[in-house]
Write a protein that binds this DNA or RNA. Structure first.
Lengths: 138, 138
DNA sequence: TCTTGAACCTCTAGTCACTAGAGACATTAC
DNA sequence: GTAATGTCTCTAGTGACTAGAGGTTCAAGA
């Protein structure tokens, strides 16, 4: 049995965040000492690692809730879990696509200026003001 | 002179968002009709287009404020604007890097399951629980 | 056993960039 | 003139935390 601080160290999840996850129902309510402090065991550690890993992968709290629900009903099919992962993947790919376009434009923009006065024709500001300068829409 | 709804249509920025930008000081306070409704002209349209474009590129409200400040002091050097764009670019590249790793792992994860019972060994859930299965750290 | 200081508790409020809703007033088209 | 649509302000909610206040508990050393 270890404290919330210890759990925090082991999982690299901040203490207030652990309490937040408990409040959101992602973590079961922890056992308490007589002095009302939370105590965790290996189970709690594993659960929190799961949550952290999923958060790192960009799953929302809501999606993680669903995954945990699935875990607790092993009779159900695994398809639902796969669905969640697939939709997460679609999300990630969409974000990447957008970021690639942004990268291109920002590269172009940030190369344009070389320290002359803004009044003349700062390329950064001009580029932002005038969408026509973009190579593609967004 | 046109209404906030018209401005919203032309810029594709929602009405409450326009009011929010005004409150945040990104947009100057609009002129009003005798009945207290906001009226805009070409200037307002251009300013809002600028803001929208910058937001699309992921600039924060704060960064946009700085850019606007620069615009209003044309005596200053253009370097500051370039700095903001360059730091934005670094940000975008960092995000892309992370997303690439996520994509790889999510692809792996979501291929693993094929509809058997969760109790057996749902690959999605197992992967999230066990970080060792990852090919790289994150 | 006592003391001290770190860690813990709850609660409230703040972050960012909006979004939603209530209830009242203005404008526009017919 | 009336009805529908648009606009106004204000407050509160979103997601996923983070920060701070003010108080209590724990563990280690004397």
């Amino acid at each position: 049995m270890f404290s919330i601080g210890e759990l925090s160290k082991r999982t690299k999840v901040k203490v207030p965040t652990i309490r937040y996850y408990e409040e959101m129902g992602l973590l079961a309510e922890a056992e308490r000492t007589s002095g009302n402090q939370r105590r965790y065991d290996k189970d709690g550690l594993e659960r929190l690692s799961f949550i952290r890993h999923a958060r790192d992968l960009g799953f929302s709290i809501e999606a993680i809730s669903s995954l945990i629900e699935l875990q607790e009903h092993p009779d159900r099919s695994c398809e639902a879990a796969t669905d969640i992962a697939v939709s997460q993947l679609a999300d990630v790919r969409e974000k990447m696509k957008r970021l690639k376009l942004l990268e291109k434009e920002l590269t172009r923009i940030s190369k344009g200026c070389d320290g002359h006065g803004i009044s003349e024709d700062c390329y950064v500001l001009a580029s932002l003001a005038d969408h026509e300068l973009c190579e593609r829409d967004h």
